[in-house]
């Protein structure tokens, strides 16, 4: 009896893939229209960048010309050298930004993966309450916390602790509370097969050793996605660093650039060249790691 049964199943199963292939393509004309719209959007999306690159290579007089030129008549590469050399702090800002982003990233990935693992795989009293608090704090607008965070950092110094105002660590540490990473890593660890730990716990490995030697190596895709998203957030950060940093030598690159236009007034050729130093690293990152990027952005739903 079993054979005709399977035969019938096979018979029924076969035509199905055929139906899927009959996926109707949209008619020709609408495809042409869609392509036209798509190219138009691409034009709008890329044009400001193209103009920035061209502007950053113009001479100080050409950049003020009317009508504005699309391609510089002379390519003035010195703009980039001058931006680097003429403003005393430019290399310092880049170094500060690299330090802040790198330090933040390492610490953030560590604490988020630890916490995410606890939520994903451990039972403990209070888990639901704490997780709800974390979800709830997604709703708190960052600006509400400016005043209290500033006062907390000031109080630490007043009580004899380290000086955090006007210090790079004052930028880094409060950002470690950023909610999204824990949420993201919890979801990621939940998606890993449970068998991973079961084998390890049979060998009698401790929870932490299992986490370090078995789980983390398997969590690289999740960590990479989170790292890229957070790097973008921290490298581009403006609001909180603006409150913490006071003197120019303690600023990060975005802050420095923002202070730039006041500093240089109408020297747009330098402003645009400076902006390239901030924009290019993230753009390269996105182009090379698109897949990770899109995955993490979709699950966060927020611009970092």
């Amino acid at each position: 009896m079993a054979t005709p049964e399977t035969a019938r199943v096979r018979q029924r199963a076969q035509p199905l893939p055929l139906i899927r292939e009959v996926r109707v393509q949209p008619p020709r004309i609408s495809r042409v229209v869609f392509m036209a719209i798509a190219f138009f959007i691409t034009f709008l999306a890329l044009m400001p960048f193209v103009l920035t690159v061209s502007g950053s290579l113009k001479t100080p007089s050409e950049i003020l010309d009317w009508p504005p030129t699309l391609i510089p008549s002379v390519f003035r590469w010195e703009n980039y050298v001058e931006v680097w050399n003429n403003s005393h702090y430019f290399p310092q800002w880049i170094a500060n930004s690299i330090f802040v982003s790198a330090f933040h990233l390492v610490a953030y990935l560590a604490i988020c993966s630890l916490a995410g693992y606890a939520f994903a795989r451990m039972n403990f009293p209070g888990a639901t309450v704490i997780f709800l608090v974390i979800l709830g704090s997604l709703m708190v607008p960052g600006q509400v916390l400016w005043v209290p965070k500033f006062i907390i950092l000031k109080t630490v110094a007043d009580l004899g602790g380290p000086t955090l105002i006007d210090n790079l660590f004052g930028i880094i540490l409060p950002d470690l509370a950023e909610v999204f990473g824990v949420f993201f890593m919890t979801q990621f660890f939940k998606s890993l097969p449970k068998e991973l730990e079961e084998a390890a716990s049979l060998d009698g490995a401790s929870k932490f050793r299992t986490f370090w030697q078995v789980i983390l190596p398997n969590a690289v895709p999740g960590l990479a996605a989170l790292a890229i998203l957070r790097f973008q957030g921290e490298w581009n950060a403006f609001q909180w660093p603006l409150i913490v940093a006071r003197q120019p030598q303690n600023m990060t690159l975005p802050l420095g650039l923002a202070s730039f236009q006041g500093l240089f007034g109408v020297h747009w050729h330098w402003v645009l060249a400076g902006a390239m130093f901030n924009a290019v690293p993230v753009i390269i990152l996105v182009i090379f790691f698109q897949r990770y990027f899109i995955r993490s952005v979709t699950s966060s739903g927020v611009k970092g």
Binding site: L257, A279, Q290
Partner: peptide, 23 residues
């Protein structure tokens, strides 16, 4: 298209603002 359209979102608010102040 997907990457090109997404690029405006990865530039920092400072860069976007400076570029548009100029434009």
């Amino acid at each position: 298209f997907r990457v090109a359209w997404y690029l405006p979102c990865v530039a920092s608010s400072v860069v976007v603002t400076l570029i548009f102040m100029w434009l």
